[in-house]
Amino acid sequence: MRVDGLHSVFSESDDKSLLEHLESNNIEVHYHCREGYCGACRTKLNEGNVDYHIDPLAFIDDDEILPCCCKPTSDIDITLY
């Protein structure tokens, strides 16, 4: 996947959330609840798809995702705010 233009590899067997994956690669993402209801981790999804393991309750636009409660299901390209 690409984060702000940089490459990073998310392995499919990984049971981490996208947020945890970014953190373990030392990429700082803003967060509070880590449970999909606060919106602090709101991130722009430029390309690709994600799957939510927790229903996202926080407001996000059509081209945005909540990394704390999803995992990529394809190659993705994201921009952090």
Partner: peptide, 16 residues
């Protein structure tokens, strides 16, 4: 703080 975060989410939804 946990409750306030969810309140904020609700007002953001209404505004959007």
């Amino acid at each position: 703080a946990r409750d306030e975060n969810i309140h904020l989410t609700s007002t953001q939804h209404v505004l959007n």
